[in-house]
Amino acid sequence: MTEETKPFEPTVIGFTCNWCSYRAADMAGTARMKYAPNIRLIRLMCSGRLDPTFVFKAFASGADAVMISGCHPGDCHYVEQNYKALRRFLLLKRVMAQLGIEPARLKLLWASAAEGAIFASEINKFVEEVRSLGPLNWARPEKPGSETILEEAKA
């Protein structure tokens, strides 16, 4: 990397469940594990709460990637709702491909409350993967600066 080229810094939205993965994030914090600052987390009660709309909303509002995280299969605080998240994840990947978004921009991570280290290292891995994919660049007229993208597109 030369000094003139700034690396692309992706913005990632992460959905966590209240019981396992948010606590994994807490644990990563308490243990002062370091990970990329590109991710911003939203706490849901359960990964089963993840409405697929949330993912597209995040992309539409400027996220370059989305991570869904929940309890390990079988460990769900609500018995089995993470399996529903898994189903939605698989479906989302297919829909994303049809919409022209690389499915690799969506990640599913199972993390227990004890797995702060895994949570942190997986985020780092994901951010690097997204960095190599480049910006999503969905034209958003509301986003300041996106006018240039539109102008470039016209020209």
Binding site: R49, F54, S61, R140, E142, P144
Partner: peptide, 24 residues
């Protein structure tokens, strides 16, 4: 609708986190 974690709450939080309409 889910109290405490409604669609409006989460969708707005997404926009907020992504600084939509904020000076970049």
């Amino acid at each position: 609708s889910g109290t405490g974690f409604s669609n409006e709450q989460i969708l707005s939080q997404i926009d907020g986190l992504l600084m939509l309409n904020r000076s970049y």
